[in-house]
């Protein structure tokens, strides 16, 4: 034990320059990330900005009670989980598949063009995207419904129909994010040793086999890390997206935590209530990340920590 302590001490001494260089980084996190967490106490107060944290009264769990007893809370929580689950199921693998396909394109010019075009939707705000899709899916003016009518079907009001609403959210999200999301995987693929492909080819592996046995295993660590991070976002729904598509006919299937809080909070400046909701959301997110990370470590060797 004595030698071990000595060892660590020597270690610190030996690398003291490195440790000194760490100090600004640690300070940054203390001041800007951990310090402000003190502000979380307003979730347990009736907070008035001018009185400040020290001057506002403590009300215990009042705001959490308000949240959990609201008649819409359960349905809102369920919608958030279901929509996020669908997105995780479909929107998470989409950029991986897209990037694998892109990687197989031999024509350099065409590949670049496809890549650039696929990034574009990322830069369009949700207000505009929702406007585009509302027109595109309109029962009277949208091309899809015109086609349906030509084929003899009844037009479908996709955006206002509870049956299709979640699908609209998932598909628009995929349309917007697939290109941008593939960047990180493309970067990972460029790091794969070409010798591995040559060896695989020598062994008689075709294109598909090469993808399955060379490319995918090589980018598995980054996929795992992305998945762990993504699982932390399950309760952090996309407010901009849902808010712009939501109508009262789809509240039952599409109202999520952020749109719900927006409607509840806008009436008054309910800082404490919204902080309470955020605290609740982030606690769950934290637990999810820890669990996913543990599973990832158990089943593979990769993980965040």
């Amino acid at each position: 034990m004595g030698t071990k302590r000595l060892g660590r001490k020597n270690n610190v001494l030996n690398f003291r320059d490195h440790y000194i260089m760490l100090i600004p980084g640690i300070l940054f996190f203390l001041v800007f990330c951990y310090g402000p967490m003190y502000g979380l106490v307003i979730a347990f107060q009736d907070f008035y900005p001018l009185r400040g944290i020290s001057g506002s009264d403590f009300v215990g769990l009042k705001h959490f009670r308000e949240l959990f007893t609201n008649p819409f809370f359960l349905s809102v929580l369920r919608n958030t989980l279901i929509i996020s689950f669908y997105k995780l199921l479909i929107c998470f693998p989409a950029p991986i598949i897209f990037c694998l396909a892109l990687n197989e394109i031999k024509s350099h010019g065409f590949k670049k063009a496809v890549q650039s075009i696929s990034y574009l939707p990322h830069f369009i705000s949700w207000v505009v995207v929702s406007g585009i899709f509302l027109e595109f899916l309109s029962p009277s003016r949208g091309p899809i419904n015109i086609l349906l009518k030509e084929l003899g079907f009844e037009p479908i009001f996709f955006v206002a129909d509870p049956k299709y609403f979640r699908a609209v959210l998932v598909i628009t999200d995929m349309w917007k994010s697939v290109g941008w999301g593939s960047i990180v995987y493309l970067a990972a693929i460029t790091n794969v040793d070409p010798a591995l492909y040559e060896a695989a080819e020598m062994d008689g592996a075709g294109r598909i086999k090469q993808i399955l046995h060379v490319t995918l295993p090589s980018i598995m660590p980054i996929i795992t890390v992305m998945f762990i991070m993504e699982s932390g976002k399950i309760l952090n729904d996309s407010f901009q997206q849902v808010y712009n598509f939501l109508t009262p006919t789809t509240y039952g299937v599409g109202d999520v935590i952020s749109t719900f809080v927006y409607r509840m909070g806008i009436q008054n400046m309910q800082y404490s209530f919204t902080t309470a909701v955020d605290l609740f959301k982030n606690t769950i997110s934290f637990i999810l990340v820890v669990i996913t990370n543990a599973i990832a470590r158990k089943t593979s060797d990769y993980g965040l920590w």
């Binding site: 008649p71 509240y251 009436q267």
Partner: peptide
């Protein structure tokens, strides 16, 4: 003020339906 947002949501949903 503590219930009006809930009442609004209830009403919007029921009316549209």
């Amino acid at each position: 003020s503590s219930v009006i947002a809930t009442l609004d949501t209830l009403t919007e949903q029921a009316y549209f339906d």
